[in-house]
């Protein structure tokens, strides 16, 4: 009942030509840029990696073998399970969760400070200063961090100058650079949704709670955090999804022994030229992260609609 009314109103406001054009563009975006590529990846993931001549031939049938490979490994291996890839997968998911949680704790105080001291020029300057580094390419930023964390990098030099350590610390090999890089890469996507929500919180509510004797901890627990919840979840979703799917930071900042799951996907596509296998890995990552996000949203009682606000 409701939908036709929305559409008739939409056409009334925009006119038939403009309305159709707008809907056509959105449909083009959805179908050709999002749905069809994903469907073709899904299709790939269920097919054998055949030489071009055999594509479309009698051997080109659907199979689960690409997914089986992630779980059981190749037939030639001696292990029952594909422990190497599964470990990388678990580590990627866990590390992305940790990066997300770290970002929440780091951004909340900052977002509260920015959101509640509204309007002042100093705060606006701070926000601009936060944004400026993001004008630089993601890969360049990762390289900059690599230089900072390197053996003779700024950080090690400073630590040694202060006599906090006698020999340089290998931040790269110990994955500290990787986590720092991932944490930094998407931190603004955590900060801004939180900041937007907290900025709209009526300051009188905080004062009212304070007037009634509430401690700062109580005010945050009962007033600010429940109010900011949609922003926190929205930011957390984006940071988690993007961290789990990051490629540049792990490529550049990851230690030689540590692989990120996206690097496996990349290798299947680019090095092994096995798109079918790569597609299966990518689909597993996509579905897992979506399931995790939906579970977290359910646990924290946040609706999809709240996130869009």
């Amino acid at each position: 009942m409701k939908k036709p009314m929305i559409f008739s109103q939409f056409f009334k406001n925009n006119g038939a030509v403009m309305g159709s054009a707008l809907i056509g563009l959105v449909a083009f975006w959805l179908i050709f840029l999002i749905i069809l590529p994903q469907l073709s990846m899904l299709d790939y993931s269920f097919r054998y990696n055949l030489p071009p001549a055999e594509v479309g031939g009698p051997k080109d049938v659907y199979t689960l073998s690409n997914y089986e490979h992630l779980i059981y490994g190749s037939d030639s291996s001696h292990q029952t399970y594909n422990t190497v890839d599964l470990k990388v997968f678990m580590r990627t998911i866990l590390a992305a969760m940790l990066v997300t949680i770290f970002n929440i704790f780091l951004c909340y105080p900052l977002a509260y400070f920015l959101g509640q001291s509204k309007g002042s020029g100093f705060v606006r300057l701070l926000v601009v200063l936060l944004i400026i580094p993001y004008w630089i390419n993601e890969i360049l930023r990762a390289f900059a961090l690599r230089i900072i964390f390197g053996d003779s990098g700024l950080l090690n030099e400073a630590l040694m100058f202060l006599h906090l350590t006698s020999a340089p610390i290998d931040f790269i090999r110990q994955d500290i650079a990787l986590y720092a890089g991932l944490g930094y890469a998407y931190i603004l996507l955590m900060l801004f949704p939180m900041y937007n929500v907290i900025e709209s919180l009526d300051r009188n509510q905080i004062e009212a709670a304070r007037d009634m004797g509430a401690s700062w901890l109580h005010i945050h627990r009962r007033i600010v955090i429940p109010y900011a919840k949609p922003g926190i979840v929205s930011g957390a979703t984006m940071v988690f999804m993007l961290s789990a799917g990051a490629l540049a930071a792990p490529q550049i900042l990851g230690g030689p022994s540590s692989l990120w799951f996206t690097q496996l996907v990349y290798q299947w596509f680019n090095d092994s030229l096995n798109w079918q296998q790569g597609a299966a890995y990518a689909i597993v990552l996509l579905v897992s992260t979506i399931v995790i996000v939906l579970t977290v949203m359910r646990v924290f009682k946040v609706n999809m609609g709240d996130i869009g606000k």
């Binding site: 509510q205 004062e207 009212a208 007037d211």
Partner: peptide, 9 residues
């Protein structure tokens, strides 16, 4: 204190 906008939670 009762606020102008009441500030109910």
């Amino acid at each position: 204190l009762i606020f102008q906008n009441l500030a109910l939670f």
